[in-house]
Amino acid sequence: MQIFVKTLTGKTITSEVEPSDTIENVKAKIQDKEGIPPDQQRLIFAGKQLEDGRTLSDYNIQKESTLHLVLR
């Protein structure tokens, strides 16, 4: 499924993921596309910071959901 990751600069990254993918996994995909190390990434969805060990389905993230990427 496709999800969108919006950066603070307003850029939107499209990523191909599975509901069973972990947040860590998603951060790795963002690193592949943007070159941002996962340890600098914080992903936010519905006002919550997403934890690395959890999966997209844990957070009820569905296709075409938009996550927000904040850098630390």
Rank of each mutant, 00 (worst) to 15 (best):
G35Y: 03
D32R: 12
L67D: 01
I61R: 01
N60W: 04
T7Y: 14
V26E: 01
T12Y: 10
E51F: 07
Q49V: 15
P19I: 08
V5A: 02
I61Y: 00
E16Y: 14
Q31W: 15
T12N: 05
G53C: 08
L43N: 00
T66Q: 05
I23K: 00
I44E: 08
K27I: 07
H68L: 15
L50F: 01
R42H: 12
I3L: 05
N60M: 08
K6Q: 10
D52C: 06
I30C: 00
K63W: 09
Q41P: 01
G53M: 09
A28R: 15
G35L: 05
E18I: 12
F45I: 03
D58E: 10
T14K: 09
E64S: 10
Q41F: 15
H68R: 08
L69D: 01
A46I: 06
S65F: 08
N25C: 10
L69S: 02
S15K: 05
R72F: 12
M1N: 04
D52G: 05
R42T: 15
V5R: 00
T14G: 05
Q2K: 14
K48I: 14
A28V: 11
Q62A: 10
R54N: 10
G47A: 04
Q40N: 09
Q41N: 03
V70R: 10
K63V: 07
D32E: 14
Q62V: 13
M1I: 11
K48L: 12
E24T: 08
G53Q: 11
P38M: 15
S65H: 06
Q2P: 08
K63D: 14
D58P: 00
D32A: 14
L69V: 06
D58I: 02
E64V: 03
Q2M: 13
G35C: 05
P38W: 13
E51N: 07
L67M: 05
E34N: 09
V26F: 05
G35I: 02
L71I: 13
N60D: 10
S65Q: 07
L71A: 08
V5W: 02
L43D: 01
Q40R: 12
T14Y: 09
I3F: 01
E51G: 04
T14Q: 09
E24A: 15
T55K: 10
Q31P: 03
K48A: 09
S65D: 14
R54L: 11
G10L: 03
Q40H: 12
R42D: 11
P37K: 06
R72P: 12
P38Q: 14
E34G: 07
L50V: 03
I30V: 06
D52S: 06
H68Q: 11
E64P: 04
V5E: 02
I3R: 00
Q62L: 10
E64Q: 09
V17E: 00
K11F: 10
D21T: 11
H68T: 13
I13Q: 02
T12H: 05
I36M: 05
E24H: 11
D58L: 02
S20Q: 09
S65N: 09
T55A: 06
T12C: 12
S20M: 09
L50G: 00
Y59I: 02
D21F: 08
H68M: 13
G10A: 04
I3C: 02
D21R: 02
M1H: 05
D32W: 10
T14M: 12
D39N: 11
N25V: 14
T22H: 04
N25G: 09
T55H: 05
L71D: 07
K33W: 08
L8T: 14
S15C: 15
T9Q: 12
I30D: 00
E34M: 15
D21M: 11
P19W: 07
L50P: 00
K6W: 05
F45C: 03
P19A: 09
V70M: 11
V26N: 00
T12Q: 06
K6L: 10
R42F: 13
V5K: 00
Q40E: 11
K63C: 07
I36P: 05
Q49A: 12
D32N: 10
D21P: 00
T7D: 08
G35D: 05
L69E: 02
L71C: 08
I13W: 11
L69K: 00
G35E: 04
L67K: 00
K27E: 01
P19H: 05
V70C: 08
E16T: 13
P19G: 07
T55Y: 05
F45R: 02
Q49W: 14
T14L: 12
S15R: 07
K11L: 10
F4S: 06
E24Q: 12
E51R: 09
L50D: 00
I23M: 03
L50T: 02
V70S: 07
S15F: 15
L56H: 00
Q31E: 09
D52E: 08
E18W: 13
G53D: 11
E51C: 10
P19N: 05
S65R: 03
I30Y: 02
F45P: 01
T55S: 08
I61M: 03
L71V: 13
T9F: 13
N25Q: 14
V70Y: 12
P38D: 04
L56P: 00
E64A: 09
V5H: 01
G53E: 10
I3N: 01
L43H: 01
V17P: 01
R54V: 06
K48F: 10
T55D: 02
G53Y: 11
E51D: 09
L56D: 00
T7L: 15
I3W: 00
P19F: 06
K33S: 14
Q49E: 15
D32P: 03
L8G: 10
R42E: 13
R72Y: 12
A28Y: 12
L56A: 02
V17N: 04
L8H: 14
L71N: 06
S57C: 04
P38C: 10
L43T: 00
A46K: 14
R72S: 12
L56T: 01
V70P: 01
Q49M: 13
Q41Y: 15
G35N: 07
G47M: 04
L8M: 13
K33M: 13
P38S: 14
I30E: 00
L56F: 04
E34K: 05
I13H: 04
M1D: 03
V5I: 15
E16G: 05
I61F: 02
T12E: 05
T9H: 12
Y59W: 01
E24I: 11
E51T: 06
E18Q: 13
S57L: 11
D21A: 07
I30T: 01
T7E: 03
T22A: 05
T66C: 05
I61N: 01
K48G: 05
I36Y: 13
L56G: 00
G10W: 03
Q41L: 11
E18A: 12
A46E: 14
R54W: 10
S15V: 15
G10E: 03
L56K: 00
D52P: 06
L43K: 01
T22F: 08
E34W: 15
T66W: 07
L69A: 02
K33T: 12
L43A: 01
T66K: 05
I3Q: 01
K27M: 11
S15N: 08
L50K: 00
T22S: 07
D32I: 13
V26P: 01
A46H: 13
L71P: 09
E24K: 13
T55M: 10
T66L: 10
Q41A: 06
G35Q: 05
V17G: 02
G10P: 02
I36L: 06
T7S: 07
I44L: 12
R54S: 07
G35A: 05
A28C: 09
R72E: 12
Q49H: 12
Q49L: 15
V70D: 06
N25S: 15
K29D: 05
I36K: 03
I23N: 00
D58S: 13
M1F: 15
T66R: 04
Q62F: 10
R54K: 13
L8S: 14
G47R: 04
T22C: 03
G10H: 05
D39H: 12
Y59H: 03
